[in-house]
């Protein structure tokens, strides 16, 4: 009962935030609605026992990326009306067809009631057992530092390259 209540609360907040985000005309307030949707979504993640995902959702998406978006919008002064950006009836038609096609596909999946068994049932059980024994963060950390050590360390290099690259490209002039 309690669970259903909180799920409905978070789900309504997430869906409502998403709808308001595309409905609002001001880019800044539309961004704020997106942050609301992200927070609500992280609530749903907590209810699914995905604590790590919930924390990442708040820290990375709601925190870092949204602040970045906000800065970009404010610095670029994108306060004008957005319908100028959408060109032509053809583009709208394509967007309508693609959007309703995606909606139909998702709806078909939901109504057919098929569970997405991506990695197979036994691995799902293994993941659940692991989460029970050491929590979601521990279950994620262990493979990260053992089986996936190589890509993990490579990611460090990737981030360094991104930082150095940003500095190189943003520098005003050569020596």
């Amino acid at each position: 009962m309690m669970e259903a209540f909180f799920f409905l609360l978070f789900a309504t907040m997430a869906a409502g935030g998403a709808i308001m985000m595309i409905a609002s005309r001001n880019p800044v307030s539309s961004l704020m609605y997106l942050v609301l949707a992200f927070f609500a979504l992280s609530g749903v993640f907590v209810m699914l026992d995905a604590h790590f995902l919930a924390a990442v959702q708040v820290i990375v998406y709601a925190g870092a990326i949204m602040v970045l978006f906000l800065f970009v919008i404010m610095l670029l002064n994108l306060g004008h009306r957005e319908d100028i950006d959408m060109r032509g009836h053809l583009a709208r038609l394509v967007a309508l067809v693609a959007g309703s096609g995606l909606f139909a596909a998702v709806a078909a999946l939901v109504f057919r009631g098929e569970q997405a068994t991506l990695a197979g049932e036994e691995s799902r059980l293994a993941v659940e057992a692991m989460i029970r024994s050491r929590g979601a963060v521990g279950a994620l950390a262990e493979p990260l530092f053992t089986s996936y050590l190589v890509p993990f360390e490579l990611t460090a290099l990737l981030l360094l390259v991104a930082i150095v690259g940003a500095v190189v490209l943003a520098r005003r002039r050569a020596p």
């Binding site: 996936y148 190589v150 890509p151 490579l154 990611t155 290099l157 990737l158 390259v161 991104a162 150095v164 690259g165 190189v168 490209l169 520098r171 005003r172 002039r173 050569a174």
Partner: peptide, 24 residues
């Protein structure tokens, strides 16, 4: 491994994007 493949391809690509725009 597909994950290493992806990180490696990004490491290569991002470095090369920056090198492409190196002449400021």
């Amino acid at each position: 491994d597909l994950i290493v493949l992806f990180v490696a391809i990004e490491l290569m690509s991002i470095s090369v994007y920056v090198l492409t725009g190196y002449d400021r």
